[in-house]
Design a protein around this nucleic acid. Sequence first.
DNA 1: AAAAAAAAGGGTGTTTTTCCCCTTTAAAAA
DNA 2: TTTTTAAAGGGGAAAAACACCCTTTTTTTT
Lengths: 213, 213
Amino acid sequence: MTYSVVVVDDHTLLSQAIGAMVNSFDKFKVLYTCKNGRELTEKFSASPKNIPDIVLMDINMPIMNGIETTEWIATNHPFVNVMALSVEDAEKTILQMLKAGAIGYLLKDTEKKVLEHALIEVVENGFYHTKNVTNILLKSMTGKSQNDIQFRDKEIIFMKLACSELTYKEIADKMNLSPKTIDGYRDHLFSLLEVKNRVGLVMYAIKNRIYTP
Amino acid sequence: MTYSVVVVDDHTLLSQAIGAMVNSFDKFKVLYTCKNGRELTEKFSASPKNIPDIVLMDINMPIMNGIETTEWIATNHPFVNVMALSVEDAEKTILQMLKAGAIGYLLKDTEKKVLEHALIEVVENGFYHTKNVTNILLKSMTGKSQNDIQFRDKEIIFMKLACSELTYKEIADKMNLSPKTIDGYRDHLFSLLEVKNRVGLVMYAIKNRIYTP
DNA sequence: AAAAAAAAGGGTGTTTTTCCCCTTTAAAAA
DNA sequence: TTTTTAAAGGGGAAAAACACCCTTTTTTTT
């Protein structure tokens, strides 16, 4: 299966370069590129075929910037993963992007390997691993770590599997862990998320975009 | 709780009349009216606050007709319930509307009582009761009865409750039925929907808009 | 360096779920 | 008017799920 990517950047040269990089990964394909947010919203609204799995989004753009666009995507297409692209490590704007709903950020001079890894992380685990870094960043700046919960390493993968028809034993097999460890994950999540049973966990996962039906 | 309704019709007089009718029901309120589909897509895209629970949609409209608009809603906002409004009983177009994703249809000269009943059905049971009539219509025309399944009376209510954290015993209490009856509903649905367990049932309910997370 | 938290797992018992089987009554269809 | 199907429910057993108890090792924090 291949995943579709949209690159949004006003610098044609840069978006072409990033697009070429993306196309060189066999799991990913560039659907199209946009020069600003308005172009993206028009594309999205024109046809459901234009809605990609991932958006790589520049922050500074004319007409409709990355923050506004990310907010628009978060409300209108909540299952699209937005990854911010920033030139320099401008903490304030990155923070705004994360608050707007971006799931991670990359520097534009990122090496191929890192970009590929990031994209795989996103489609496979639903989060880019730097979301932890992200949270630290958020915590250090705003005090509280957003409203989202810090999950333990494999708990996200477990949650996704718990949304399938697999039994816990089968999940344990699939994750190469003892059923008892899975028991532990479940118990921990139940108390953490204040849910009573697996249905509660499934609903949490869906509402928080950990699992997409 | 009140539900929001959007009326889409190019005949201002008619949409005003229907709107006034809707506003006279204490459970429903008109959010705004549109003269064609394009107006609706713009409103929807402008703000999540513009997204109603129900859309009452005319079929023949200039610029973007009811069928296209219903398709757009079905893909972009799958949890919005579209009810078709038709002047005469034009079977071909009604069929197209149903295929596009409308959950029922009403004649424009519908009496107040019928309209109110239809709206309540939609928000309470997720389907307008004529969906059965609808299915018969589809069967008689296309041969097969769509791809959706005919549920027994209380099974839809049961399915919704199965999407909560309630145990089956608690569901039985809530529905004033014996736990054994609930057992029967579950068993019947499991084999009907080809799912293995409650998580499968929950996913079916979500994917088929029986339960909205 | 000490304390806390994460990650993996063990043991045991209760409750729920799931899967069969089967009955009666009423409503639809043939 | 038979025959089917829906709707409600019963019994019993096996399999999961859930709850709490606890240990060890490795990271992280402080």
